[in-house]
Simulated assay, not measured.
Amino acid sequence: MASDEVPIRDESIRLGQFLKLASLIDSGADAKAVISDGLVMVNGDVELRRGRQLHPGDTVSLEGRTARVVQG
Protein backbone atom coordinates (compact mmCIF):
# COMPACT_ATOMS: atom_id res chain seq x y z
CA MET A 1 0.00 0.00 0.00
CA ALA A 2 1.44 3.37 -0.99
CA SER A 3 1.67 6.05 1.65
CA ASP A 4 1.88 9.81 1.41
CA GLU A 5 4.90 11.40 3.03
CA VAL A 6 3.91 14.25 5.34
CA PRO A 7 6.75 16.49 6.58
CA ILE A 8 6.75 17.85 10.12
CA ARG A 9 8.79 20.84 11.35
CA ASP A 10 9.65 19.53 14.81
CA GLU A 11 11.10 16.24 16.04
CA SER A 12 7.66 14.89 16.90
CA ILE A 13 3.95 15.61 16.47
CA ARG A 14 0.86 14.43 18.32
CA LEU A 15 -1.35 11.92 16.54
CA GLY A 16 -4.43 14.16 16.57
CA GLN A 17 -2.46 17.01 14.96
CA PHE A 18 -0.88 14.71 12.39
CA LEU A 19 -4.22 13.30 11.24
CA LYS A 20 -5.32 16.83 10.38
CA LEU A 21 -1.96 17.82 8.85
CA ALA A 22 -2.04 14.73 6.62
CA SER A 23 -5.63 15.56 5.55
CA LEU A 24 -6.84 12.19 6.84
CA ILE A 25 -9.55 14.04 8.82
CA ASP A 26 -11.15 17.49 8.70
CA SER A 27 -11.08 18.63 12.34
CA GLY A 28 -9.82 17.94 15.83
CA ALA A 29 -13.26 16.65 16.79
CA ASP A 30 -12.99 14.10 13.97
CA ALA A 31 -9.60 13.03 15.36
CA LYS A 32 -11.07 12.31 18.78
CA ALA A 33 -13.90 10.28 17.23
CA VAL A 34 -11.86 8.09 14.86
CA ILE A 35 -9.17 7.45 17.47
CA SER A 36 -11.63 6.52 20.24
CA ASP A 37 -13.47 4.25 17.79
CA GLY A 38 -10.22 2.33 17.19
CA LEU A 39 -10.05 3.24 13.50
CA VAL A 40 -6.51 4.67 13.56
CA MET A 41 -3.42 2.48 13.30
CA VAL A 42 0.15 3.60 14.05
CA ASN A 43 2.88 1.34 12.67
CA GLY A 44 0.31 -1.42 12.19
CA ASP A 45 -1.18 -1.32 15.70
CA VAL A 46 -4.48 0.25 16.79
CA GLU A 47 -3.76 3.48 18.69
CA LEU A 48 -6.29 4.91 21.14
CA ARG A 49 -4.24 7.87 22.44
CA ARG A 50 -4.79 11.15 20.60
CA GLY A 51 -1.67 12.55 22.26
CA ARG A 52 0.59 9.73 21.04
CA GLN A 53 3.89 11.27 19.93
CA LEU A 54 4.82 10.43 16.35
CA HIS A 55 8.34 10.65 14.96
CA PRO A 56 9.82 10.53 11.45
CA GLY A 57 9.41 7.03 10.04
CA ASP A 58 6.10 6.33 11.81
CA THR A 59 3.14 5.42 9.60
CA VAL A 60 -0.49 6.27 10.34
CA SER A 61 -3.39 4.50 8.66
CA LEU A 62 -7.08 5.39 8.61
CA GLU A 63 -9.75 3.76 6.46
CA GLY A 64 -7.33 2.43 3.86
CA ARG A 65 -5.27 5.63 3.60
CA THR A 66 -1.74 5.78 4.96
CA ALA A 67 0.56 8.71 5.73
CA ARG A 68 4.19 8.51 6.81
CA VAL A 69 5.84 11.05 9.07
CA VAL A 70 9.01 12.55 7.56
CA GLN A 71 11.32 15.28 8.83
CA GLY A 72 10.52 18.57 7.12
Rank of each mutant, 00 (worst) to 15 (best):
T59L: 12
G57D: 14
M41A: 14
M1N: 05
F18P: 08
A2E: 12
Q53G: 01
G44E: 06
V46S: 06
L19V: 15
V69Y: 01
V6P: 06
A29R: 12
G64Y: 02
G28D: 09
G38S: 10
N43Y: 07
R68V: 02
S12R: 08
N43G: 09
L39P: 03
I25S: 04
D4R: 12
K32W: 05
M1F: 01
D10L: 04
E5M: 13
V70R: 00
K32P: 14
A31E: 11
A33Y: 11
S23M: 09
V6D: 01
P7A: 05
I35R: 11
A2I: 07
I8D: 02
E63S: 05
S23R: 15
A67S: 06
A33L: 14
G72M: 02
L39M: 14
Q17H: 14
L39V: 08
V34K: 10
R9T: 11
R49S: 09
V34R: 06
T66R: 03
K20R: 13
L48A: 13
L15N: 00
P7T: 01
Q71H: 13
D10Q: 15
V70F: 00
G64V: 01
E63C: 02
A22R: 08
G57T: 06
E47A: 00
A29N: 13
G38C: 08
G72F: 09
D10I: 12
A31L: 12
V70C: 09
V46E: 10
R49Y: 05
V69F: 00
V70I: 15
L54S: 02
S12L: 07
D30E: 15
L54M: 12
V69N: 03
H55W: 06
L48R: 12
V69P: 04
S36P: 03
L39C: 10
L15H: 07
G72V: 07
R68D: 07
A67H: 00
G28P: 10
R65T: 10
R65G: 09
V69S: 04
G57R: 10
R49M: 13
M41P: 00
G28Y: 09
G72C: 11
T59M: 10
D45R: 14
E63K: 08
I8Y: 01
A2P: 06
D37L: 08
I13S: 06
E11H: 06
A22C: 14
G57K: 05
S23W: 11
G16E: 15
L19P: 06
V60Y: 00
V40P: 04
S36H: 03
R68Y: 10
I13Q: 11
T66H: 02
F18M: 03
G64P: 08
V6H: 05
A2Q: 09
T66Q: 08
S27D: 11
E5Y: 07
M1C: 03
I8F: 05
D30K: 13
V42M: 05
Q17A: 14
D30A: 12
V69K: 04
R52Y: 01
G64I: 02
L48H: 10
M1Q: 05
